[in-house]
Nucleic acid binder design. Structure first.
Length: 479
RNA sequence: GGCGCUAUCGUCUAACGGUUAGGACGGAGCCCUCUCAAGGCUUAAAUACGGGUUCGAUUCCCGUUAGCGCUACCA
C-alpha cells in the first residue's frame, strides 16, 4: 500500500517550495492509487504559531487538491517518547548531560566535524540513571557507531548514496525538556503511519542517513526515499521569507490572481519534466505523467525580481490557463475579484465582458485595470489630448465624435451593427477607420489601449456610450 | 573547516556515446490589425574549465572551479 506524507512545520507561512513538495507527494499518491497524508510537524513548541498553521491550511485549501488523512505530531508525543526510550534501552542511545549551547555559540568545527561531547557517550548506565533520577537535565543522543561502516541508500531521484557513520554526529533524539527532535518524531511517525515513500526537499538528503539509523534501531525497514531539488531565488539560495520576502508565500500568488491549476502547473515544471516538451498541463495530465525519473537533481531558480515579483513563465502559464477556461467559469472568478475590489457587477454583465478581456489579462486582478471602465459609472478624468487621433488634430477628433454622436443613436448595438455603422461613418467623413475609432475609444474607455471597440460599445450599451461621447465633445469644445 | 549534492541558452528544461545540441518563457524583428492583446512566421542565445576512456563525448571516469545543502536540545 502506497502511503506518502507532506509534513510542514508551522513556523512560517506555506512557501512555494513546500507547496511543490506537497504537490509531488499528492501526484505520486494519485498516480498510484495511494494515500496522501498531511502531518503537521509541530514538535518545536517555541517556534510554532497559530498564524503559520492558518497560512498553511489556507494555502493548501487554495490549491484545492485535498488529502486523505491528517495528523499532528503534538498529539503523538507519547509515541515519540516510547521510541526514544526503547532505543535508549537497547543501548543505542545515551543521555548527554552537557548544558545546552546558546543560540549562537556554535560548536567549533574548525578541526573537523563535531561528533559528540566528550565523556557522555561512555558514561556508565548506573551513573547516567543516577544523574537522571536526580533531576539533572539531559538530551538523549543516538550513539552513532564509530566503526567506519558505510551506510547505503537508494534515492529514487538521486540514485545510490552513501555516507560513513564516522561523518555522522551523535544527533539528538530528545531535548532536555523531553520533547522529541524532528529526526525522532519524524521517523517514529513515519513508522507508525506506515509511510512507504518519503518525498521531501533535498535539504534532507544528508539527514536521511540519520533516519536510516533510527529506522534500524526501531527494527524496521526504512521506506523509499525521493528527494526533490530545491527551489532557489535568483541569487541561488534556498527560498526563504527572510531573504526573498513575500514572493515565496503561496498566498501571495493567490492574492495576485493566479489560478490554482496554473500555479500547480508552474511548480511542477520546476525540477520535473514530462520529457515530451509539454508545458501547459491539466491536473489529470500531471497525475498521469508524474514519476521520479522525470525529476531533476539540480536546483531550480524561481525567476523573480523586485519589479516583477512573479516568474514570467508562471505568468504565461496563468495566461494560458485563463484562455483555456470556459467563459462562464472565468467570468465567475473575475466577478469575485471585481466585487472584492468594491465594484458591483452582475454575472450576466461579467459574461459579456469576459470574452473581451480574457486574452488581455495574465492575472485575475488585471481585470481591475483592463476592464475598469466597464465598472465605473463616470469615467475618471483624462487628458483631452488623448482624444486626438494619429495624424489628426482636435478638429478631426471633434468631427469624429460628433459623427459618432449622430450615427450611434440609430445604430443597431451589436458587434456587426456597430461595425457597419461606424465604418460607413468613417468613409462618409473621409477618415481612416482608425481615425474615427480612436477618439471614440478614448471617449468611452478613457484611454487609448482597450479591448476591441465594437464589442466594448455593445457591452457598455447605447446610453453609456452616448453619455461618455457627449462628455468628450464638451471637453474638446472647451479647449 | 568536514561531509554530501549539483553543473546544457538569461530562466525552466530535452537529448539515458553518434542530433545542424531540441522545446518553452522572456528578448528582437516581420506579418495580421480600429488601439492593446491574441495569433502566425523569423531570429539571437547554452553543453563551466582541464585531463582522460572511446572510432566518436553534453552524455562515462578523474581533477579544478563555482553554486547549493547539511554540519542545533530548528525542521
Amino acid at each position: 500500500m502506497l502511503r506518502v506524507r507532506f509534513a510542514p512545520s508551522p513556523t512560517g507561512y506555506l512557501h512555494i517550495g513546500s507547496a511543490r513538495t506537497f504537490i509531488f507527494n499528492w501526484l505520486y499518491a494519485r498516480r498510484h492509487g495511494g494515500t496522501m497524508i498531511l502531518r503537521i510537524d509541530d514538535t518545536d513548541l517555541e517556534r510554532n504559531t497559530e498564524q503559520s498553521l492558518g497560512s498553511i491550511f489556507e494555502g493548501l485549501r487554495w490549491l484545492g487538491m485535498g488529502w486523505d488523512e491528517e495528523y499532528r505530531q503534538s498529539d503523538r508525543l507519547a509515541l515519540h517518547r516510547a521510541l526514544a526510550d526503547s532505543i535508549l534501552e537497547k543501548g543505542l542511545a545515551y543521555r548527554d548531560f552537557t548544558p545546552a549551547h546558546g543560540e549562537e555559540s556554535e560548536k567549533d568545527h574548525t578541526g573537523g566535524p563535531w561528533l559528540f561531547n566528550p565523556g557522555q557517550r561512555e558514561m556508565s548506565s548506573e551513573e547516567s540513571d543516577r544523574r537522571a533520577a536526580a533531576g539533572e537535565p539531559f538530551v538523549v543522543r543516538y550513539k552513532v557507531p564509530r566503526n567506519g561502516e558505510i551506510i547505503h541508500l537508494h534515492d529514487l531521484v538521486f540514485g545510490d548514496q552513501s555516507k560513513s557513520v564516522n561523518d555522522i554526529e551523535d544527533f539528538a533524539l530528545l531535548r532536555s525538556n523531553g520533547a522529541p527532535t524532528y529526526h525522532l518524531a519524524s521517523c517514529a511517525d513515519d513508522i507508525d503511519l506506515r509511510i512507504s515513500h518519503i518525498v521531501r526537499g533535498q535539504d534532507h538528503l544528508t539527514n536521511t542517513f540519520k533516519h536510516i539509523l533510527i529506522f534500524r534501531a526501531a527494527g524496521v525497514e526504512p521506506p523509499q526515499f525521493a528527494h526533490l531539488p530545491l527551489l532557489t531565488g535568483p541569487d541561488g539560495s534556498k527560498l526563504s521569507k527572510r531573504r526573498h520576502g513575500p514572493v515565496v508565500s503561496v498566498t501571495t500568488y493567490r492574492d495576485a490572481g493566479f489560478l490554482p491549476r496554473a500555479f500547480v502547473n508552474f511548480l511542477c515544471l520546476l525540477g520535473w519534466s514530462p520529457k515530451d516538451n509539454r508545458e501547459m498541463m491539466s491536473l489529470d495530465e500531471l497525475i498521469e505523467s508524474f514519476n521520479f525519473e522525470g525529476v531533476n537533481r539540480s536546483n531550480a531558480v524561481v525567476n523573480f525580481t523586485e519589479e516583477d515579483p512573479f516568474d514570467p513563465k508562471a505568468l504565461w502559464l496563468n495566461h494560458e490557463h485563463i484562455k483555456a477556461m470556459a467563459v462562464e467559469d472565468l467570468a465567475a472568478e473575475l466577478q469575485a475579484v471585481v466585487k472584492r475590489a468594491g465594484h458591483d457587477v452582475g454575472l450576466q454583465k461579467m459574461w459579456q465582458i469576459t470574452p473581451l478581456i480574457r486574452e488581455r489579462i495574465r492575472l485575475l486582478r488585471d481585470v481591475l485595470t483592463v476592464a475598469d471602465f466597464f465598472f465605473a459609472g463616470e469615467l475618471p478624468p483624462y487628458d483631452s489630448g488623448e482624444l486626438i487621433p494619429k495624424k489628426g488634430d482636435a478638429a478631426m477628433a471633434l468631427r469624429a465624435l460628433e459623427k459618432a454622436r449622430e450615427v450611434l443613436p440609430h445604430a443597431q448595438f451589436t458587434h456587426d451593427g456597430l461595425e457597419s455603422a461606424l465604418r460607413a461613418a468613417a468613409e462618409s467623413l473621409g477618415l481612416k477607420a482608425g481615425q474615427l475609432f480612436e477618439p471614440i475609444r478614448v471617449a468611452v474607455c478613457g484611454r487609448k489601449t482597450a479591448p476591441p471597440l465594437f464589442g466594448t460599445l455593445e457591452v457598455l450599451g447605447k446610453e453609456t456610450c452616448l453619455h461618455r461621447i457627449d462628455r468628450a465633445i464638451a471637453q474638446l469644445t472647451s479647449l
